[in-house]
Amino acid sequence: MAKVLFLGPVGTYSHQAALQQFPNEELIPVTSIPACFEKLISDIDMDYGVVPLENSTNGQVVFTYDLFRDFMQADLSPSVEVVGEQYVDIAHCLISPVPLSEEQLRKVDVIYSHPQVWGQVKDYLSDLETKYGKTAKIDCSSTAGAVERCIAEYATDRKITLAIGSRASASLNKATIVEGGINDVNGNTTRFLILKRRDESSEIGSQALPPKGDEMKVNFVTFVINQDDPGSLIDVLNVLREYKLNMCSISSRPFHNQVQSERKWQYCFFIEFYGNYGTDYELLAKRFDENCAKWIHWGKFYRNALYYQIP
């Protein structure tokens, strides 16, 4: 039985993603996204990790992006690879430790949740504050952790606070759903990556692209350009055009080059592209070498069928 790490506790959306990908394996919660990477790398008993990457409403999960970036920033060889993806419908609920009257709800002044959630329920919270008064929004490491925190505070001193999380986390903690379906946008979805420890024999850098015949998978690559002259980013992207490769995603995060310390501000770019029939990946790798200061191919995987579902 495989051992699979996910951002805990039980009842998070990461837990749901892990269940979708690994319904019959041992699922092990960890306290943070960095802990998921660290334990997967350091503990040979662990087989996979499940981490959130982006949300259809609120964009990047920066904690995850920055962990990929930090490998390049520190000039470290990648110790994990991306082998799959999952998509989870995000249906947020306003959750209380106990049933509340209108008057009790009016007195609540604290709401807990994961920081990624606030942008997904902004309109709802604005309406809630108009009706009941201003509340403090306090970050937790996960939505399930937010539910556990408000439960614990009520158990300790009967203080009533609220959390925003999933129906599953409310059910697991025997909490009360004050209101369900509070997302500002219908069809709100989070995309998760499936990670595994990179084998010692795995090739990295310029030799890491898939061989011929492994076409039509999604390739996940990070890179830093050689210089900030006009057209330097286009030179890299033109490599994909040259080989008729369809880029399906591009984003960036700030990058501090610790080797070239005189350059205090750069960007690490993240791209995903589909493989193509007949592509000479050896030549493609050489072209990346020519146009990037450094680059890493993090893995390849088939597009999950949930990607194509219409909300």
Rank of each mutant, 00 (worst) to 15 (best):
D109K: 15
D127C: 02
I138Y: 12
K217I: 09
E272M: 14
V110R: 10
G119D: 15
Y48V: 00
Q116I: 13
N276F: 00
Q258T: 13
D123P: 02
A17L: 05
P34M: 10
I41D: 01
Q258H: 09
S232M: 08
D70S: 12
L27F: 05
P115V: 07
L27S: 02
Y267L: 15
F255Q: 09
R263D: 14
P254T: 09
M247Y: 03
L105M: 15
A155Q: 11
S202E: 02
C93V: 06
A293Q: 11
A175V: 00
Y132M: 04
F63Y: 09
V185M: 13
D70N: 14
L237D: 02
A208I: 00
V80T: 13
V30P: 02
D280T: 14
E81S: 11
H92I: 03
R158W: 10
P23T: 07
C36W: 04
E129L: 07
F37H: 08
Q227C: 06
D123M: 11
A170E: 03
A175I: 02
E290R: 12
G278C: 07
G11H: 08
T176W: 11
R167Y: 04
E38G: 01
K217V: 10
A17G: 03
Q309L: 14
Y124P: 10
S77D: 13
Y307S: 15
F37P: 00
Q207D: 10
I164P: 04
V110H: 09
F220L: 08
S166G: 14
K174M: 02
I296D: 07
V121L: 08
G205I: 01
E129G: 10
I111T: 09
V51D: 03
P230A: 10
G84R: 10
K3H: 15
F269V: 06
E148A: 03
F22I: 08
S252H: 13
F288V: 02
T130A: 12
L53Y: 10
M46S: 05
E179N: 02
L19K: 12
V224N: 01
K300Q: 06
G181Y: 08
Q116T: 14
V108S: 06
N219H: 11
Y243R: 01
F71H: 05
T161N: 11
A293G: 06
N291A: 07
A155H: 07
A144W: 04
Y65M: 14
E153R: 01
L40E: 00
G205W: 03
S166E: 09
P311T: 11
E179I: 01
C292L: 04
V30S: 01
K174C: 02
E103V: 13
F68D: 08
E200L: 11
Q16P: 06
D214Q: 15
